[in-house]
Design a protein around this nucleic acid. Structure first.
Lengths: 201, 201
DNA sequence: GACAGCAGCTTGACAGTGTCAAGATTATTG
DNA sequence: CAATAATCTTGACACTGTCAAGCTGCTGTC
């Protein structure tokens, strides 16, 4: 497939090619369009070749999720960097990036967010996932925790944006009836978020 | 299989049996354990028999989701009926039933909540789904809508409980680190919920 | 009561899937 | 250069959903 070299027995960068093919299949045909054999075919390679780079389908999925997490973290960070240097604006920007990523990468995001997460256990695998998670944590850091204990703000925001994104992905937020779509900004505004004193940046 | 009648060519209630087998398979072996052929085998019937009751796997899934929605609505209503006759208590009870159902029926709930919803379009199919949805709507009805428009309360609560449930299903709420699990009550307490005046029950 | 029609189910086949074992080819290393 | 390891191919297997064709027994009509 390469025009630089004559066709070799070795692909050269099959692992990368398989991940890319997988993401493309996901975003084109949704969850059920992903298969080892189709990835192999898209990379111009025999059906059993992927087994030497991933331990079965689950391994390919893990690699795709890992790649997706890097893209996800990047998408959120980009929005945050464009926002005003103020806690609420940055939090909203993070959520904007969260939802935007899920919209622009529908199949990939579905795979990522609906996969049981063993990342915390496989430390090696989850570096990108942790990076994405830390962006969420950092965005919530300037706000006081609720009276009922620490982390409440963080999990409230996470649940809210994840739930909203999920409802969107499942087509539950269509504005087909009289009511217009409820914007996420309005939902976040309902949360009691108090800025901790003496915080800059 | 029945001890009342001799074995007949006809099963008698195959449709029900297939749905029940499907739910059992889901809750025992998770999402990937569900297959038409295994449902058929569990019902003691040939592999192609389901095709005469459902239009393929998708049809069986739709029937299972429909059944699940009835159970879901029942679970929420039961909790609400046990709660104090007061808006906040009833809202919390609804969320308790929501999460509890997902915990007690892991595989089924995963199938239900991660399926793109065509219920609003297939009016006939979605009666049970609408019943469950209406319980959510009714639980939010006593509360004022936010300043930014109607339905904000409803979608904030829905996003929050769905997101929290989803994080739980994906194993993101484990209290493995120093922090204990964040209770949903604490998250709901962070929402600005004002009771509308002149409402009883 | 007999017979046609039909719904319920079976059998057999097909393409697609993941996974394994064995072998062929290429790159790397001593 | 030769041995070894990495990479990929080929072939096979069990499992999946789906379709076509046929068998079985119930139901309704004359």
């Amino acid at each position: 497939m390469s025009n630089k070299t004559v066709k070799s027995h070795h692909h050269g960068d099959l692992r990368e090619a398989l991940i890319n093919s997988g993401i493309q299949l996901l975003n084109e045909g949704g969850m059920n369009a992903l298969s080892l054999r189709k990835c192999a075919a898209a990379a111009g390679v025999s059906h059993a070749a992927p087994a030497h780079h991933f331990s079965g389908l689950q391994g390919l999925v893990a690699a795709i999720v890992d790649r997706g997490m890097a893209m996800f973290a990047c998408a959120m960070q980009k929005k945050i960097d464009q926002a005003d240097n103020e806690p609420i604006a940055r939090l909203l920007a993070m959520c904007d990036g969260y939802l935007g990523f899920a919209i622009e990468n529908e199949g990939l995001a579905y795979l990522m967010f609906n996969q049981k997460n063993d990342f915390m256990e496989n430390q090696q695998q989850g570096r990108n996932a942790n990076a994405a998670f830390n962006i969420l944590v950092d965005s919530c850091a300037p706000f006081k925790d609720g009276p009922k204990g620490p982390l409440a703000t963080q999990y409230a925001v996470w649940s809210l944006i994840q739930g909203y994104t999920h409802l969107f992905q499942m087509g539950q937020l269509k504005a087909d009836q009289a009511c217009p779509t409820v914007d996420f900004t309005d939902l976040l505004a309902m949360l009691n978020l108090e800025i901790e004193s003496n915080i800059d940046c």
